[in-house]
Design a protein around this nucleic acid. Structure first.
Lengths: 192, 192
DNA sequence: GTCTATATACGGATAGAC
DNA sequence: GTCTATCCGTATATAGAC
């Protein structure tokens, strides 16, 4: 790991992540990234010689780490998968209401836009979803669900939550996430 | 309804809908719309004096009608809500595999990008989701579910399907939709 | 590592002829 | 209803000084 702890480089990645989440790939301009990050104007192409795509790539990788950790940490707070996942969704709803910068749907907003035009970024987004999926699946397995059941249920949960986020954003309230949370026990109580 | 059946106007709306679905709002340029629609180059601002936003607005309205009808028609083929919804998802998966132009997620791709910057379009997208939600809820009510149950379950189904589409697009296969379809009976068989 | 200046393309939009 | 020409802003990216 030769990468330095450069603050400028770091701020550029963080800011890009936020802006991508809010305005998508085409909607995010390099000028705005520079302005909002407070990074030195001349440094962008020094740190990211391949330009916007490289910046997006690294921002997506960063988001992958952050969100995966958020999921894992949240799920670790309860042993029972049902409780754990339900509380994860409540946590998400709280974060959504709190606004901060969590308003926007991280990866979906990018991948929907570039899936047909940028295979490199699409492939990276695929890995992000896989990583979230794996976190849910592991939790289910540890709760006694079979491998196949865990895979299918985790896929469903992942899809539900993302769809709920889309609708939350559209309605500007967190109700859809709360509804999803209530459905979790219905889906998970059975062939365990 | 003074609106004429103008073919040019119509083609512009259709093409805009497809392009928005594929490349999002910022990613869709007026030049490309004109090129792909084959519409006369000078006619865009004649038919849509308010420019890109008006074009998008009408394209979203069109998508609302088309998709809502697709959902209703598909659901009407089976009396039992479980069968009906499950088969609707299989239909969707088939359409996804068939590619045609159904590759891209219609409204989500727009609303994720503009939810914070364009209230008029966001509000319209909210109505689109509401319309789809209503179609599912009506089917559930007709199958004997209570009003509240129908509302919650329809919300969940709507979210699941949209989340599944996002993941389908990312993975470039329809597996996630098939997984969702299998979960439908689990969710719906109970307090009916 | 960071700066300014600039190349070049494309975005949305308007004017005025036909 | 449609055409061409054009304005103007902004986009990504590069060159070369500091």
């Amino acid at each position: 790991m030769v990468k330095s702890n450069n603050t400028t480089r770091n701020k550029l990645i963080e800011t890009t992540g936020k802006l991508l989440q809010l305005h998508g790939y085409s909607g995010t301009g390099l000028n705005e990234i520079i302005k909002q990050s407070g990074a030195p104007k001349g440094s962008l192409y020094y740190h990211f010689p391949e330009g916007k795509e490289q910046l997006a790539y690294e921002a997506i990788e960063r988001t992958k780490e952050n969100v995966t950790n958020f999921i894992k940490d949240s799920l670790a707070r309860y042993d029972d998968p049902i409780e754990a996942i339900q509380n994860f969704i409540y946590d998400s709803a709280k974060r959504f209401e709190a606004d901060s910068y969590f308003n926007g749907v991280p990866i979906a907003n990018i991948v929907l836009e570039i899936s047909k035009t940028n295979d490199r970024l699409r492939e990276l987004c695929r890995k992000v979803f896989e990583s979230w999926h794996e976190a849910f699946a592991d939790k289910l397995k540890s709760g006694g669900y079979s491998d196949e059941e865990s895979w299918d249920l985790a896929m469903t949960i992942n899809a539900m939550i993302q769809g709920a986020f889309v609708i939350c954003l559209t309605r500007q309230d967190s109700k859809p996430l709360l509804v999803m949370a209530e459905q979790i026990p219905v889906m998970l109580i059975k062939g365990k």
